[in-house]
């Protein structure tokens, strides 16, 4: 499972594919203001990126993978 609610944050991990988009969306909608932890993310599908861009949840942790962090953080305005 690559999306989990842990310690009051939404943790995404590993390869987050398009099939996770709906789960991710509904979790964010159910818990507005929930922070998202991307530390363990290896790959992020466009569909998930799109959810992040649309809902702009607070970020608990940036991706640990430097290449992804460099690309993603500016997009999220960090």
């Amino acid at each position: 499972m690559s999306i989990a609610l842990e310690d009051g944050r939404l943790r995404l991990a590993g390869d987050c594919g398009v099939e996770e988009a709906e789960t991710f969306l509904s979790m964010l909608q159910q818990h507005p203001g929930l922070a998202v932890d991307l530390a363990e993310v290896a790959a992020l599908h466009t569909a998930l990126l799109q959810v992040l861009l649309a809902f702009r949840p607070p970020l608990a942790a940036a991706p640990g993978e430097p290449g992804l962090a460099r690309l993603l953080l500016p997009l999220l305005g960090r």
């Binding site: 988009a21 709906e22 969306l25 466009t46 569909a47 799109q50 959810v51 861009l53 649309a54 997009l75």
Partner: peptide, 20 residues
């Protein structure tokens, strides 16, 4: 650079339609 094509519709958001 990633930009939404149309303004986000957060009410009835379709996660499977690419709006980017």
């Amino acid at each position: 650079r990633v930009t939404p094509r149309a303004a986000w519709d957060l009410e009835s958001f379709d996660p499977f339609a690419c709006n980017l």
